[in-house]
């Protein structure tokens, strides 16, 4: 299956929108008005956009702590995210969840959560319900290389394979769990995607910074899930540019080198694709500039609206517990 011009431009624009928003947020974050621990996806946009662009609106996704890109890529409203970070009632979780608990039922973003691996099982549960109902819907579980070490990862793959549920597991391997490299966490000589094969899942590793490759691989994976053949596993190799939590750079912190960060920045998924499209004449510098301006306007507007929106009323502190 080829990718149409319309599709490839949409993939680029999707990534650009996430990048522009997160860079703006990272800047504004330092004003201390957004008070919620925030894990930026800057550098990892291709996996989120590539996967979510291959889904239908009725499909659902689950994510972990680094969830902004997934939420936006699946169609979560921008104001819902910005409002949530500012702790406003207009936020997607009405200011109760924060950066790591994003949700938007309307676009199929069911839940993200800060406990490693937790939502992998929850995605399997939604997929199980879909298969019991003979529905065409698919559930996606986004998680990182760190979650693979949790017991729940293995319990979930076992159950999903056993019941052949339509779930797509997407591991974004960015090489680090907080500040710990893969080398101190997982035995050498086995790739993450190979572990899924032990549970009989079809499994592939893709360049997680190549949005077209991720999109193509996901289309095939989703087709597999939708046709009732069971779960599928994708591993995308990618890299987080900024610190684990927070808006800053941390290549001087000692756990990784500046050279490593720069090497991955040179493989920036947005730069890569836009250069290719310019080369191939599929878009122009002017078009890219116009996109950026439109996106910046959308972001600026969302920030103004969020900041001028009311905080939740203190009278409602207990509301929603039951």
């Amino acid at each position: 299956m080829g990718i149409s011009k319309e599709e490839i431009l949409s993939l680029l624009r999707g990534m650009l929108r996430i990048r522009c928003l997160e860079e703006t947020l990272a800047e504004r974050y330092q004003e201390q008005e957004m008070q919620t621990p925030t894990h930026f996806s800057i550098g990892q946009e291709a996996t989120a956009v590539g996967v979510c662009s291959a889904l239908e609106q009725q499909d659902v996704i689950y994510s972990g702590h680094r969830c902004h890109a997934h939420y936006l890529a699946k169609g979560g409203p921008l104001l819902g995210l910005v409002g949530e970070l500012y702790g406003r009632e207009v936020g997607c979780a009405r200011g109760r969840g924060g950066s790591v608990h994003l949700t938007d039922a309307g676009s199929g973003v069911i839940a993200s959560s800060a406990i490693l691996g937790q939502t992998i099982a929850v995605a399997v549960g939604s997929a199980w319900a879909f298969s019991l109902d003979h529905s065409r819907r698919v559930a996606v579980a986004f998680f990182g290389d760190g979650a693979v070490e949790e017991g729940i990862f293995h319990e979930s793959l076992n159950f999903a394979a056993l019941h052949k549920v339509p779930v797509l597991f997407v591991c974004e391997n960015n090489l680090y769990s907080t500040h710990s490299s893969l080398a101190v966490r997982q035995p050498a000589g086995i790739q993450i995607y190979e572990r899924a094969r032990a549970y009989s899942l079809p499994s592939r590793q893709v360049d997680g910074n190549d949005v077209a490759a991720v999109f193509q691989a996901t289309r095939e994976a989703v087709e597999w899930c939708r046709s009732g053949r069971g779960p599928y596993f994708l591993e995308g190799l990618t890299y987080r540019w900024r610190e684990h939590v927070g808006p800053l750079w941390d290549y001087d912190a000692g756990y990784r080198t500046k050279a490593e960060v720069e090497e991955w920045m040179a493989r920036c998924p947005i730069k890569r694709l836009s250069e290719q499209l310019l080369r191939d004449g599929l878009c122009s510098e002017g078009e890219l500039r116009r996109w950026r301006e439109e996106i910046q306007q959308e972001i600026a507007h969302a920030i103004v609206v969020a900041k001028s929106s009311p905080f939740p009323s203190v009278q409602c502190l207990l509301e929603g517990t039951y």
Binding site: V60, Y62, I110, A111, Q118, T119, I120, A121, V122, A123, V124, G125, S126, A127, W128, A129, F130, L132, A139, G151, I152, E155, S156, N158, F159, L162
Partner: peptide
């Protein structure tokens, strides 16, 4: 009947409940 997966099973039940089931 289920595999021995108490933790995942609770999550699976939650995920099924999130889309309309009552486990």
């Amino acid at each position: 009947d289920i595999p021995n997966c108490e933790n995942a099973m609770a999550g699976i039940a939650i995920g099924a409940a999130a889309v309309g089931k009552r486990p």
